[in-house]
């Protein structure tokens, strides 16, 4: 990998002992590198250490050991924070401000001048569909509206790296779709996106790579296609119009077979075996109703990793 945009090196975080609570190791020797213009999905159960990692990257927590950098700058520096747009899980803002005032406030913290802040509002309100609610107080906003505003805040100052903590949690299907499309458009605009999520279907759709965190340790990381081993995927073939003898013969050659109203369902080890079986069925006067690769889902893979 060329110079990583996010470089996490042996990061360990131990929360000190408190009254009634023992010390807790939240992260243990985490090493991770995220390349430029990549969408990286950071997965793990509740308490696995995802938010701790994100908060260390955003300089909200100090690591017990190890270091991390963003755009080549130590995460403790202002230079690193200049590169980051951060969306916390369930973002909270000052309830008495309007979205327009909120964007202006964060623009000032980013060091933008007045004219630039006004342009930021124009661009972000258009992009996140905030124009209609620009003058309303945030108090009373729905989850979806807050999330849109949170994204707009993260994008103030056009940072090259976006760190998003559960950006899709609690959103309805339309809201999730909007966020997915937004993330993809940000990658198209050259951004690097690091996000944690429990919505594995969404992660599978948009991520280039994922990492799975189990009890503070990185269990695995890589491209989704490689992790799910899709080159050797099984295929389900559904055929109809076969004689009983031909059907029995094909069923014997399949890994698994069952009958339904649609026809005979045959599971084969790979696409080549399925093709051979389809040719045999056609030559015996049968019809191919379905030819479906059985893909291991990220969710199934995630559950398997957690169990192991």
């Amino acid at each position: 990998m060329p110079t990583p945009v996010i470089d996490i090196d042996s990061l360990t975080k131990v929360y000190p002992r408190q009254i009634g609570q023992p010390a807790r190791r939240s992260l243990d020797d985490l090493r991770l590198r995220i390349g430029e213009n990549e969408i990286f999905g950071f997965l793990g159960q509740n308490g696995a250490g995802k938010t701790t990692t994100i908060k260390i990257l955003c300089s909200l927590l100090r690591p017990t050991k190890g270091a991390a950098s963003v755009c080549g700058h130590d995460v403790r520096t202002r230079a690193a924070r200049s590169c980051i747009g951060y969306l916390p899980e369930n973002p909270y803002f000052y309830e008495y401000l309007t979205p327009r005032e909120t964007i202006d406030f964060y623009g000032r913290l980013q060091g933008l001048d007045k004219a630039t802040r006004a342009r930021e509002w124009d661009a972000l309100s258009e992009r996140l569909d905030l124009r209609g609610i620009g003058a309303q107080r945030i108090r009373g906003f729905s989850k979806g509206m807050r999330q849109r505003l949170g994204f707009a805040v993260a994008l103030v100052g056009d940072p090259p790296v976006l760190i998003l903590d559960e950006p899709m949690s609690g959103l309805d299907p339309l809201g999730r779709r909007m966020i997915r499309e937004l993330i993809l458009s940000l990658r198209a605009a050259g951004k690097t996106i690091f996000f944690s999520s429990h919505v594995l279907g969404d992660v599978e759709q948009i991520c280039d790579r994922v990492g799975i965190l189990v009890e503070g340790r990185l269990r695995t990381q890589g491209r989704i296609d490689e992790l799910l081993n899709r080159r050797n995927e099984q295929v389900e073939l559904v055929v109809s119009g076969l004689s009983a003898e031909t059907a029995d013969a094909l069923a014997r050659d399949a890994l698994h077979a069952r009958r339904s109203e649609a026809g005979l369902h045959l599971t084969t080890a790979d696409a080549a075996a399925a093709n051979a079986m389809a040719r045999a069925a056609l030559s015996e006067g049968g019809q191919i109703v379905e030819f479906t690769p059985i893909r291991e889902s990220l969710e199934a893979y995630f559950v398997k990793e957690q169990a192991s």
Partner: peptide, 14 residues
């Protein structure tokens, strides 16, 4: 407590 600090301290200010 209200977590408004997250989006503030993650900005480039001391």
């Amino acid at each position: 407590d209200k977590r408004t600090i997250y989006t503030i301290l993650s900005r480039p200010l001391h």
